[in-house]
Structure formats: C-alpha cells, structure tokens
Nucleic acid binder design. Structure first.
Length: 1109
RNA sequence: GGGCGAUUAGCUCAGCUGGUUAGAGCGCUGCCCUGAUAAGGCAGAGGUCUCUGGUUCGAGUCCAGAAUCGCCCA
C-alpha cells in the first residue's frame, strides 16, 4: 500500500526527513561506490569564501553545480565531489580586525601576527563548517567534512596549535599537530573539501611563481596605485571595478601666481586638497584657447571654455593665447615652503637638475570641468605618475601606508590625508591662493572590502609581466611573438574552451587584451607568503619553488619554521642563502593576491605533484561554473594564466557563467535596504526545492530577482505535479491498486500510450539539455510535461481511476500514471532532489528490487525509449486543439460544459489523424457532444474566407500585395475547381492560401491552422433533460462533500421537485453519487444535509445522509 | 570616453531567417468546471513594441542616429 499523501504538503518537513534518511542510509556514499568504476566526469568547484554564512545568491550557483553533478552521476559517471573553500586574504582579515576592534596595521602588529593569523584560520573553519551545513541543507551532494569536526579542530587550534590529534582520513586515522592537520585538509589522504590555505595549495603557487621567475616574468615595479589607508595595502587593477561609488568632495579652485608675470595667476581646480602639497606642474591642452580675465585687481588665466562655470562674479577678458603658448611659464606652488617640497625640487627629477613649478602640455586636459588647467602631483595619482615619468618630473609622495603625512610636511605631518581638507583650505586663504570652494559629487574609487575612499600612493609592488600587446590582428602574429607574450598564450588557451553564454569568450579575450601586468603582492598578513627573497647587498632575487626548496636553501631559522604552515609569521623565520652572493636573505614581507590561491586549484586539488598520473585523469576538468561578473578577471583569469604558465593547457573544457541575483524590488540585496533574505530563512520558509526550481527557471545570462513572490510562483508549479501525485496515491489506496497486472504499454488506450510517449520524450529532451549544460531547457521541458500530465492526461482520465467498471482499463490507467510519475520523478531528480525522492520512494515502495533512492537510479531515457510514439503525440496535439476550440465556442454561445450537444463537425488539417477513432472518442467525451462527424469540406456548414499566406506569396507578388489583401478582406474571391484561388486578378495556388470559415446560422465555428470545428448549437428537450441530470448530479456531489462524507460512503438520498424529463436519468445519477434509489419528497426525521439546485425544468430540493452500515 | 547587451501589457519575460490580427506566466475583471479543490478551464480589459529617420509592397524584427538602463573596459 502506498503511503498516504497530503494534498497540502509540508515541503520543508519532508526535506528534513529525507536529509535524515540519506544520512542514515549513507545514500551518497553508496552512489559514489556505485559509480566508482564508471567513466570519469571532472567537475571543479570554484571555491566559496569561507568568511560569512552562505547567501541566497550562493544557492543559485550551488544549485547549478549540484544539478550537473547529480545528472552525471545518473549517467553512471565517476566524480570527485569536492567542494572548495577560499580561505586567505584581506576579506578574512578585515572581519577578524573588526571582531578584535583593531583599527589599522599597527594595531595588528601590536596584537601579534601569529595570534592574528591563527584567528583568521579559526574564522575560516567556523564559516566552512557553517557553509557546509547550509549546503547540505540545500541538498548539495559533495564529499562534505563533518562540520563538528571542523569546529573541533578550530577550538583545538585556539587552545594550542601544537597539540597532536587524530582525524578520520580516507583510509584510516591520520595523526598530526592540529596546525598541520588543518594545513592538510582536503588532501588525498584526508578527503573532504579543499581549503586554499592548505600547505599543498600554497606550495604549488610557490612553484608557479618560481616558474614565472625562471622565465623572467616576475618583477618589482614602482607605481602609483590606489591605496587603502585603513587596510594599508594597494589595490590591483583586478580589484578596482567593484569599488567605484558616488562621493561628495570639495571642488576647490586656487590661484597659482606666475613668476614672470607679476599680478597674474593660473586658476587651477582640484577635488583632492590633500595632494596640493605634492604639486609639481600645471597642465594645459596645447590646442585649447586660454584667456586672461580681469576681476577687480586679479588677473587670472583659465580655459576659455570654462569661463562661465569656473568664475564667480563679473569678469573682463583682456588677453587670449593657445595652451601651447602657456607651456613653460613658471609659477609659485601652493606649498613651496615645506622642507620635503624644497628637498624634492632641489634634487630635481631623474636628470638631477633643480626643478621649478612649470606649465606643461597634456592632451588629456579638457574643459568639461574645472578651469582647463590641471594640477599635477605625480606622487598622488596614477595618471600624474605616468605623465611625470614621461616628462621627468620630481615625485613627492606625501603619505605613509596608513595615509598619514610623512615628516617634512610642516603642520600636516602625522595627520591623516583624508581629514586635512579644511586645514589646506585655511592655508590657501592665508597665502592668498584661495579662489573658490564648491561641493561636487563624483565617482570615486573605494576599497572594495572595507569601503574606505582610496588614496594614491607611489609604492613598490611585485608583478607578473603579462607580455607585450602587439598592434596587429591576432591571426597575423608569428609563433615567436606569441611565445614572447604570455597574454597571447592565454588567448590561445581561451580559444580551446567552450564559453556559455558565448559572449563570455569575447569578454575574456577583451580582458586579456587590455589587462595590465598582474600585481600579486599585498602588504598584509594573512595569505600566501610570497616566496621572494631579494638580496639587500647584491640585489639578486631568489624565488623559492616549494617547501623542500626552502629547506634546502635555509641557512637559519628552519627549526623555528618546521611544524608550521607556510604562513606569516612562521615562514619569515627562515633565512636563505642568496642565489647570487650567498649572503643571508629574508623573505619580502608581502603576501600574495588571493586569486593566486584560487587559480592554482586545477593543479593543487587534482594532485598535480603528489600523483601526476591521477592528475592527468581529471585534467583538464570538464566543467566549471561561477557567477561571471568579476570572474573574467578574477577566478577564470587566474586559472587560465596559471595553467598557461605551467602547462600551456586549458584548465577546463567548458565554462558556464550566470548573472547576478537581485532582490524582488530589482535592487541588490542588502541588509541596509531591508530587502535581504537570509539563506536559512529562505530554506525553511519556502523549502529548498522551491528555491532550486525558482533558480533553474531563470535565464542564467540574465539577472535574477529573488523573493517570496517569485518563490510562490515556483511553488505553485510544483504543487500542480504534487496534486497529480496525490490524486494517484489517493485512488490507488482507495481501490487497493498495486503495481503489476496491467496490459503491456502497447496494448493500452491511446491516452495512456500518449503520456508514456511524452514521458519518454521528456527524459530524452531533458537529458539532451543537461548534457549541453542547459538547465533552463531541461526545466522548461519538465514544466511543459507537468502541464500535459495534469491538464490533459489526468483531467481526461480521472474517471478511469475512480469508478471504472472495466478492471483491465483501470489497471492500464493506474499503471500508466504510476509509470509517468515515476518517470518524471527520475527526470526531476537532479533539479529537485527532495520532491523527486519523496515521490519515488512512495511509488516504488512495493518494488523490492528498486534502489532505495531515486538518486541511485540511472537516467531513464534509454529505459523509456521504446515508449516513444511521435505520430501519436502529433495527433493528440490536434485533438487537444479541437477541444480548446469547442470550449471557446461553448463559452461564446453560453453553453455550459454540462449541457450535452447533439453533434459537432470536424475538418482535420492533414488527410487523417493517427489513432483516429480513439482520439475522436476522447474529444467527444471531453467536450460533451453526442457525435462527431468528420468532414472533408465544410462548405455546407460555413462561409469561407480566404487568407493568403504572406510568407509564401510575398516574394513572388511584391507590390501587387496590397490589392490582393484588400480583395481577400472584401471576400472578393473566386475559388477554383483545383483548389486554387483568384483574387484581384491574381491566382494563388492551394498551398498559398488558407481557407477560413465563418458560421452559418444554428452553428458555431472556430478554426486554427487548418483545423476547423463546428458545433451544433440547437438544443432538444432530451438534451436539456440530460444537462439537468448532470447538474443535479453535481449538486448532490457538492452536498456530499459539504456534509463531510468520505469518497466511498454510500448515501440515502431524497429528492423533491425533480422535473419529469429528468426522471429516466435518476438511476444513473444515483449510481454516480453512490446512493440507493432516491426517495421522493423530504424526509421526516433529521440528520440530513439539505440543499437545492436550479435546473432548466425547475428547482429540486435535495436531502441526503450517510447510509448506516 | 570606448565595447557589448537591453528597452515589448500593471509586473516578470517570449517573439526563429521581415508578412499585415504581437504572445505567455503572474496580477485584475467576469464566467465556467469541480470528490486533484489553497487546483483547473474559457473569455475580457490592458500595448503609439523607448524615440527619430531610413530600406521595403510590408518593420517589434533589418540599417542609421538619439535617449535611458545594465555589464565590461578606459
């Protein structure tokens, strides 16, 4: 017996039950064992940052990942099932700092780097455990660590990192210190998720950097870069985009007096007052016109096009010159008295000649804002720095890594650059340099992690050279040119990858074409320790290729490092011998860019070094997927770059990108916007299957809106399927049906063969979509199927399940619906793991041979293939359209569905219909007509109109078309013997027109693509009586239900006022409503449910009660 | 500033290589059906297909320009 199923399911409770069942029965482990010898399918998980709980947006990506892994498991393929956590970097540091209440890097160093780094590790373990739990809740099947074990390791690390403990590995217990065990997580002997802080991950990045160095691509650069004063680190080009935000700044206009033109000044505009200390030049555009204006006693120079916007008050133009004529003019700077400025000017630029403030030419100067004269401070801006480099200008870098003024800047020294605007303005007023102050709003870069507005600083950082950009089309490059330039080598790798959506390919190439050298250093604490050793005495740079290499080169400190993970501060203890002079060298203090950590995983997690043969079996991976905004220059890029350097091979064959998740109001989800939904809340209110369905219904290359309303829509779709399932179970229990005993499918009615064919088609279509990474296509196929199953198969077949006198037909119906539900459950399994298993388990409950989870079954397309009958599906489509047309006609004619009609006529679009008699019988019953007559020519019933088929005749007729169409509309048509048609003097062949029909009196007609339906709207008394009988039957049924009777309760029935014409039908009515022959009148004693119904022939009073056994 | 994409019903979106009457789902209104019932069916209202020009017998669709939005880059 099937377990009874509520029509109002509690999906969430059901999900928890299944999670428990899968856990108890080790379902996932058994799936892995079952596929262990299958062909390989290699999926590589893009690491999720283990720094916070999972958000609902992670649910989207993780549903794709789980879906494709599960699908390939149903194909019997062997997989690694390894989730990844991204562990190192600033984002973790920022949170740990916040927890500790630390303000800046000095605070961290005072706190102690070792303790700080340990806390970073603990935070990662905390959230890895949390995200593991959440992922399991989502139904995401991976080789998960036990979250409690992760927390145990975390707590032991907090207590004493050197204590020894044991964890359960793949082949038995593994014992080590807590610190080293944590560093070994995810490795072959321990299993579980990979962690990018692992020893192996870090070690392989060292190898990659050593390889870059060996080829001469690693270098130390000197550049002006965006700098976060709070984090004390520079931002690479990769990190800049997310950080632009609107910000209010002072728009400050100042006078800079000209040395050789007494009384005259340049007017210069800036939004960054703090950079004025470092002014070395004023730039003009040589071709623009500049004017001298008089305002009171002032004579001011500025761009002609900026007069109106830049000046305050009346002015008079007294002179005009081109920018080129201004170049070379000397002026007095805003802060000439500062010792640091004097020192820099005395030293001059690279030439060593003492320097003075001077007007320079720069084509980038414009008149859109400011004064057309631009303040240049090479120590404070990226473009200024480049320009200064070109012109040999001195560089005055005013701030330290915390954004505080260095010594030598007078009263500013020691103050924060972010907070000196007022002081600078006061200084300008005191020295007569001030002209005007506004407030402007503009896009300004902010730190993408902590939100602090960025400053610009000139600093030393380490870069990987991405190679020359050649000014010629790629296809004209020679092999030598490509071999010289890494970026083109990466492009060749990109060519070999399938990008979904395909514009991803262009995006990645675009990025590769434009990218600067990759800045890989960060002046921070928690992350990859860059293995770079720069000798202070001979300048030689040594790059250590791994832990063993470090050991071999160490001349001091190895013992203090040994037993620790390769992180600061422990690794910094090691001193190596310089590969140039042999002298002692220490590591540079920098840590690495986080994308190095994630980029190496196609190597580190597949055991590139430990077991190259095994690596080769999984590499290149078949599939990766991630949200694409940002990733073209982050994860995708770093994997491509690293794999190109190491092997010049593509790390993955197919990449599938999806867009961004927004809240239902179309805005990004933010706690502060009040539109955020937490993953846990979503999971426990809507259920994760509903969430997964919502995601998989969305177009991946479009942004998705997530919220309770869209979830309700998704849920309603699933409820339709659930209702069908619940119907099946209800009647199977009621009639005691159990599988077996039905005729073979080929001998079942057309309706049954049709839905079985649809089921087979679904498996095949959805399988093709999923093999092609098209989740949406598969989802749409399932949606269409559910609709067919519910609104066509079941609606028309209902009676076959309830009181069916024909046991063979009933068995066919049950067996068919059972097979259909089982089929769709198996197809849905990768998308809806809970709902599908719940249905599957109940439906197979009596099948001792069935696997004990839908997830242990194989993809059903082969198994169902023989049931496919496309001819029948096409014919059913025609039958369905006929029914829809009759419904439209009934509705238009005010004829209720219960009112039988005498007959209808049907003209079929093709010559005939497959399974004609069976399908016409279906139509007849469904639309409640007594007879269907097939007609070849409906001319006797309708008036015909001709519709020329424009796509067919357009090219041939051209300009004659308007006349032809007008004639067709006017009905000015000659229909010829051979079926051709003459309109406005033009003859159209039969296949160039469609003949449409309109009704003659006494009938209604409708048509659709060659299908014509006509109904007879004349009602006889007999037909009316029959309609009344059905109306009465419905009223009794309704009363039964209101009275709370069970489906199979028999009743005693009393009727009063039954019209005479209805009398003969009463026996049938009584049988349908499970009543004894009805008594007349109203019963004397009570206990009856009473009601009435209005029939054409009069009002009938009804009373009924359950019959006592 | 450059590149890519988008703009279609109140909302979310389809609309293939041009075809005259532009669709779906949700929402709204009315009707119907109903022992699957927190479902189902039929119909209605709701559209200057962002705008302006052009090509064409014919443009939501092709071309050019503009506006707005998004993404990528500078």
């Amino acid at each position: 017996m099937f377990r009874s199923v509520s029509p109002h399911p509690d999906f969430v409770a059901q999900e928890y039950e299944l999670l428990e069942r899968w856990r108890e029965r080790r379902t996932f482990a058994r799936l892995r064992a079952q596929n262990a010898s299958g062909p390989r399918w290699s999926f590589l998980d893009g690491p999720i940052t283990a720094n916070n709980p999972m958000g609902v947006h992670h649910g989207w990506g993780r549903t794709y990942k789980d879906l494709f892994c599960r699908y390939h498991a149903m194909l019997g393929e062997h997989q690694r099932w390894q989730n990844g956590f991204d562990c190192q970097g600033l984002w973790v540091e920022v949170n740990v700092e916040k927890d500790l209440g630390l303000q800046n890097k000095r605070d961290i160093e005072a706190f102690g780097i070792a303790a700080f780094v340990n806390l970073c590790k603990q935070r990662v373990l905390t959230y890895a455990a949390r995200q593991t739990e959440q992922s399991i809740r989502l139904g995401y099947w991976m080789d998960w660590n036990d979250p409690d074990e992760l927390r145990r390791l975390r707590d032991m690390l907090a207590e004493d990192a050197t204590q020894v403990t044991t964890i359960q590995g793949v082949d038995g217990p593994v014992t080590d210190t807590v610190e080293m065990l944590i560093g070994r997580l995810g490795m072959g002997d321990i299993g579980g998720s990979y962690f990018t802080f692992s020893n192996e991950n870090n070690d392989l990045i060292w190898g990659f950097l050593a390889e870059c160095h060996r080829r001469g691509w690693l270098y130390k650069g000197h550049d002006s870069m965006p700098w976060c004063a709070r984090c004390g680190t520079g931002m690479s080009q990769h990190e800049m985009t997310e950080g632009y935000r609107d910000r209010e700044d002072p728009g400050l206009t100042i006078r800079l007096p000209l040395v050789d033109r007494p009384g005259e000044s340049l007017l210069v505009w800036t939004t960054t007052p703090w950079t004025l200390t470092s002014n070395v030049a004023a730039a003009v555009e040589p071709r623009l016109r500049y004017v001298k204006v008089r305002q009171g006693n002032d004579l001011l120079w500025l761009g002609r096009g900026t007069l109106k916007s830049a000046l305050v008050g009346p002015f008079e133009i007294v002179e005009e010159k081109t920018g080129a004529e201004l170049v070379g003019w000397r002026y007095e700077g805003p802060y000439d008295a500062l010792p640091s400025v004097q020192a820099a000017f005395a030293a001059g630029g690279p030439s060593g000649v003492p320097y003075e403030h001077v007007v320079i030419a720069w084509e980038e100067v414009g008149e859109e804002e400011g004064t057309g004269i631009v303040h240049i401070a090479p120590g404070c801006g990226a473009e200024d720095f480049q320009l200064g480099k070109k012109l040999g200008l001195p560089v005055i870098g005013p701030i330290d890594e915390s954004g505080l003024y260095l010594a030598g800047f007078g009263s500013l020294s020691g103050q924060s650059a972010a907070a000196v605007a007022d002081q600078v303005i006061a200084h300008l007023r005191d020295t007569g340099r001030f002209y005007r102050l506004e407030t402007i709003t503009h896009r300004y870069p902010h730190c993408w992690r902590c939100g602090t507005p960025l400053l610009f600083r000139v600093v030393d950082e380490w870069f990987i050279n991405m190679g020359e950009v050649y000014d010629q089309p790629r296809e004209t490059l020679t092999t030598e040119q490509v071999d010289r330039s890494l970026r083109y080598q990466i492009m060749e790798v990109v060519d070999r990858i399938r990008w979904i959506p395909d514009f991803g390919y262009e995006r990645e190439l675009d990025w590769l074409h434009n990218m600067h050298d990759w800045m890989i250093s960060k002046k921070r604490y928690w992350g990859l320790a860059l293995p770079i050793y720069e000798c202070a005495s001979c300048g030689t740079v040594t790059v250590v290729s791994g832990r063993d290499d470090l050991h071999a080169r160490a001349i001091d400190g190895w013992a203090r490092f040994d037993g620790h993970t390769p992180h600061r501060p422990w690794v910094d203890e090691v001193v190596i011998g310089c590969s140039g002079c042999g002298g002692p060298v220490r590591r540079i203090p920098d840590v690495g860019n986080v994308w190095l950590d994630a980029g190496i995983v196609p190597y580190s997690t597949l055991h590139f070094r430990e077991d190259p043969d095994e690596w080769a079996r999984w590499f290149p991976v078949d599939f990766v997927t991630e949200s694409f905004p940002g990733q073209f220059r982050n994860w995708f890029y770093s994997m491509l770059a690293m794999s190109t350097v190491l092997r010049r091979e593509e790390p993955f064959k197919t990449i599938f990108g999806y867009a961004t998740l927004f809240a239902e109001d179309g805005r990004p989800m933010h706690k502060s916007s009040g539109n955020a939904i937490e993953f846990d809340e979503a999971a426990d209110r809507m259920g994760v299957d509903v969430m997964r369905w919502l995601y998989m219904r969305a177009r991946p290359d479009d942004n998705i809106l997530f919220g309770w309303h869209v979830a309700d829509e998704a849920r309603r779709e699933l409820l339709v399927l659930w209702n069908v399932y619940s119907f099946f179970v209800t009647y199977a229990r009621l009639t005691g049906w159990s599988p077996g005993g039905a005729p073979p499918p080929a001998e079942r009615p057309a309706m049954d063969r049709w839905i079985l064919s649809r089921t087979a088609g679904l498996a095949s279509t959805a399988g093709a979509c999923l093999s092609d990474y098209d989740a949406l296509g598969a989802t749409r196929a399932i949606e269409g199927y559910i609709d067919d199953l519910s609104t066509w198969y079941l609606r028309l077949s209902r009676k076959r399940f309830s009181r069916n006198q024909d046991p063979v037909d009933r068995a066919s119906a049950f067996a068919t619906l059972h097979a259909a539900l089982l089929g769709v459950a198996r197809v849905m399994a990768p998308i809806l793991p809970f709902l599908s298993d719940s249905m599957y388990l109940n439906l197979t409950d009596m099948d001792g041979d069935a696997p004990d989870s839908v997830h242990l079954t194989r993809w059903p397309s082969d198994e169902l293939g023989d049931l496919r009958d496309e001819r029948l599906e096409g014919a059913m489509g025609t039958a369905r359209r006929s029914v829809e047309l009759v419904r439209t006609l009934r509705s238009a004619g005010g004829l209720k569905g219960r009112q039988p009609l005498a007959r209808m006529w049907l003209a079929l679009p093709g010559a005939d219909l497959a399974e004609r008699d069976a399908l016409l019988a279906l139509v007849r019953d469904e639309v409640n007509v007594k007879a269907i007559e097939l007609i070849g020519d409906e001319s006797g019933l309708v008036e015909r109109r001709v519709k020329p088929l424009l796509p067919r005749i357009g090219k041939r007729l051209g300009a004659a078309i308007p006349a032809v169409m007008a004639a067709a509309r006017a009905g000015d048509v000659v229909i010829n013997e051979d079926g051709s048609v003459t309109l406005a003097g033009v003859t159209l062949a039969p296949d160039e027109v469609e003949i449409q029909a309109s009704p003659r009196p006494g009938t209604q007609v409708a048509h659709d693509e060659g299908l014509v339906v006509v109904i007879d709207t004349e009602l006889t008394d007999a037909l009316r009586a029959e309609g009344d009988a059905r109306e009465l039957q419905r009223a009794v049924q309704e009363l039964r239900r209101e009275a709370g009777l069970a489906l199979d309760d028999r009743i005693e029935l009393w009727l009063a006022g039954v019209p005479e014409a209805v009398g003969p039908h009463l026996v049938d009515v009584a049988e349908e409503v499970l009543a004894d022959p009805p008594s007349e009148g109203t019963p004397a004693d009570g206990g009856f449910a009473v009601g009435s119904v209005q029939l054409i022939g009069g009002t009938v009073e009804i009373a009924l009660r359950a019959k006592r056994a």
